[in-house]
């Protein structure tokens, strides 16, 4: 059986890729995609810990499902926002959407 650390390393890598995407991409949609990656890496962790912990305990799985729901909702709201911004400002570049400064 594959040891737990492999899952964890994988999840960490996936999280880092997502984080990098969030920090470095200019397109707002790509940032949202990065966020999805980070959420999924969390799900991997949850599933892995469940499998290596007390199997009879359903907490890990339940949590992962909640995260799915949250991620879906988040993407829906995020995309709606992006579209709304795009309609007004005609851009989806994150750096240009800086109305909130100072």
């Amino acid at each position: 059986m594959v040891p737990l650390s492999w899952y964890l390393i994988f999840a960490a890598a996936l999280f880092s890729i997502g984080l990098f995407g969030v920090l470095s991409r200019r397109n707002a949609i790509a940032i949202l995609l990065g966020v999805e990656l980070m959420l999924n890496s969390v799900n991997i962790n949850l599933a892995a810990f469940w499998r290596y912990g007390n199997v009879m305990d359903m907490t890990g799985q339940v949590f992962a499902i909640i995260v799915f729901a949250v991620a879906a909702a988040e993407v829906a709201v995020g995309l709606a926002l992006v579209i709304s911004v795009y309609r007004r400002r005609n851009t989806v570049v994150a750096d240009e959407i800086d109305m909130m400064k100072w």
Binding site: I31, A94, D95, M100, K101
Partner: peptide, 17 residues
């Protein structure tokens, strides 16, 4: 401090990180 308040989300995230 207002200099760091750029309004750019990614910078905030970077700072948070």
């Amino acid at each position: 401090l207002r200099a760091i308040q750029t309004g750019r989300v990614q910078q905030y995230l970077m700072l948070a990180l």
